[in-house]
Write a protein that binds this DNA or RNA. Sequence first.
DNA 1: TTAATTCCGACTAATTTAGTCAAGTATATA
DNA 2: TATATACTTGACTAAATTAGTCGGAATTAA
Lengths: 165, 165
Amino acid sequence: MRLTSKGRYAVSAMVDLNNQRDQGPITLSAISERQYISLSYLEQLFRRLRESGLVNSVRGPGGGYLLAKDAVDISVADIIRAVNEPVRTTMCENGIRGCHRGQRCDTHQLWESLGLHIYRFMDSVSLAQVCAKDAVLNHIQLGDVARYLPADPMAEGMIKIEAIS
Amino acid sequence: MRLTSKGRYAVSAMVDLNNQRDQGPITLSAISERQYISLSYLEQLFRRLRESGLVNSVRGPGGGYLLAKDAVDISVADIIRAVNEPVRTTMCENGIRGCHRGQRCDTHQLWESLGLHIYRFMDSVSLAQVCAKDAVLNHIQLGDVARYLPADPMAEGMIKIEAIS
DNA sequence: TTAATTCCGACTAATTTAGTCAAGTATATA
DNA sequence: TATATACTTGACTAAATTAGTCGGAATTAA
């Protein structure tokens, strides 16, 4: 999980796309103007968003981009994952096994787990939640981070998140 | 909040430091060997960790680094924040007000809020939690992400996290 | 005094981010 | 059909960040 301004750009663009979803296909130049992101850079980002199945494209005049699914089914993590390269594991050559110099990297699983947590958290925030607050309050309330649940509750213990205020 | 392998290195080093805390000051070369991080790069990272008050240094032979506070009082976010440059806000020139070209950047507060969430989550995981599981299971259980609370519960609503399994 | 070790600044290389450019291809519409 | 619109693609560049390297200076235990 990488978190840089690249992901920020992508999230901003997707928010824009969803906010304008009644207008039919949205052109990148329109997004470019509203979000102050260069058209060419948006082209790069949307190539990836399309390849990840998050947006559909319509070519020709009147064309543009549309969300491929409902905003409640798109998480912030989906968007960030789409535009980022897969994380380069600098410390470990292979995946979860066999770390470099033939020795076990004893912090590998540790970071894997921590990364998983962050990932799940980001996956718990949907584009719809982000957009709703953007439109209404321009601000996300903590209480709206609905549920933060592991894919298999039995596997690793389970956390319940409740808004209590 | 930026999340790259730089932060990973720093967290790994801090985990190592805490795991060896009974041994007195720990030299960077020892950490370098155990964690496969170059000594010079560790020097860069520890300069920042020291400036942020997360570690104390002891110079001269027998010297090295020690955690400046108890591991329960150091969050993963503290560590990552320490080694990273302050985030460059590419889209907005000033802080929370006055975005570029004189116009209001309508996704600024949005991302501020989302970033705040991620931040708080990372702040809820302490080095001690990370280390405990590293030593025993080499794995963090979800149920151990103890509390995820805003600094001022009244300000923005409040979330309670409970392990329920 | 000597060796171990942190401290510090300047430098470099690799990678990623951000952005440009110059072509294409598809298609609605005049 | 012609044309303008808009996506698609690949190659390229510049800036920033990451991940180091290097050489020395300061500190201090032995």
